[in-house]
């Protein structure tokens, strides 16, 4: 679920790219400051986006700090810190900890264990500092978990499953209770849905193979997956039919994802964001698709089909 909300580097100006890096490093540094260097594991592009958004929206005072990064110790770099950074870093810790803890407990994923072990103490502290957010994260992750465990009841549509992630992120996006609470909540909600569905779209083939829950399952089977069960069909023909169906499915999923992105952007355009709006728009209108393109290219290259 981590990392979809990044910039499209190719579309950025060098100037903007440098700025973005400073925000990135600033958040990383603030995470390390709040709980030791391993807390940096909670860093993700999604949180950098939120950090930049909130700092910019609330017109926060930016402090530039020159510092060393343990991973790149050769040169000092400039990092931006604001008050919102502390909030965002705590939210990042909360999300990373509870998300990865589930990964570890269910799938025995080693990464999950590593991250959750490293963040345990910090997550406790963050939960104490923001009890409301902690409860929301716990609640929605639990609901999502139950849904995925039950393999999704027949009634559970895309909206329901994606809505849990949406509501969780909506809560995270609300920094202060004020005028901007509503648009921020709406933004977080649809961005959360986007992230969840993007993740589901990317994993569909893997999930079908392993019998895991995926909200796209029914549509995928209808459009493409059914060909795998047509044993009497000729191999070449089957593959071709499958490819056609997969294309149709991808177009369908793309349309849905676009809707989510559109709603998120509608809410964003309401907010009086002036500084760094180019970077934020780069992320919202282009960067969030970078991963999508990458996956599509991977699929195509893997099958040695030329895309026209």
């Amino acid at each position: 679920m981590v990392g979809y909300v990044s910039v499209n580097v190719e579309e950025l100006k060098i100037k903007e790219y440098r700025e973005y890096k400073r925000w990135y490093c600033g958040l990383c540094r603030q995470m390390a400051e709040s709980g030791g260097t391993l807390t940096r594991l909670a860093l993700s592009y999604d949180m950098v986006f939120l950090y930049l958004l909130l700092s910019s929206l609330y017109d926060e005072k930016v402090t530039g700090v020159w510092g060393f990064c343990p991973l790149h110790p050769v040169r000092r770099r400039l990092m931006y810190e604001t008050k919102a950074g502390r909030y965002v870093s705590d939210m990042g810790i909360l999300l990373a900890y509870y998300d990865r803890k589930d990964d570890w407990e269910d799938e025995k994923e080693f990464q999950g264990f590593l991250v959750s072990a490293a963040l345990k103490k910090q997550a406790g502290r963050a939960a104490e500092a923001y009890p409301e957010k902690y409860r929301a994260v716990k609640k929605y992750l639990k609901k999502l978990h139950t849904l995925e465990k039950s393999r999704g009841s027949k009634k559970a549509g895309l909206d329901l499953a994606a809505g849990y992630t949406g509501e969780m992120l909506a809560e995270i996006f609300v920094y202060q209770k004020d005028l901007w609470e509503e648009p921020l909540r709406r933004m977080g909600f649809y961005l959360g849905k986007f992230i969840y569905l993007m993740d589901a779209w990317e994993d569909i083939e893997k999930d079908v193979k392993n019998g895991n829950y995926n909200p796209f399952f029914r549509i995928y089977m209808e459009k493409a997956g059914k060909y795998h069960n047509y044993y009497s069909m000729d191999g070449m023909k089957k593959e071709k039919a499958y490819q056609e169906g997969k294309k149709e499915f991808d177009a369908y999923a793309m349309r849905i994802l676009e809707k989510m992105a559109a709603e998120c952007c509608r809410a964003f355009e309401v907010l009086p964001v002036v500084e760094h709006v180019e970077i934020l728009r780069n992320i919202l209108y282009s960067g969030i698709w970078a991963h999508h393109e990458k996956v599509k290219c991977r699929d195509i290259e893997g099958k040695k089909v030329r895309y026209e």
Binding site: E11, A262, N282, S286, K294, E301
Partner: peptide
């Protein structure tokens, strides 16, 4: 929503961002 989003994206100069880019390797 989708049309609006696309138009906005194009307006800000991100038209090519979502088409398949010519050289994926470079992107990666």
């Amino acid at each position: 929503g989708g049309n609006w989003y696309e138009a906005m994206g194009n307006g800000y100069g991100f038209g090519g961002g979502r088409g398949v880019q010519t050289n994926c390797c470079w992107d990666i």
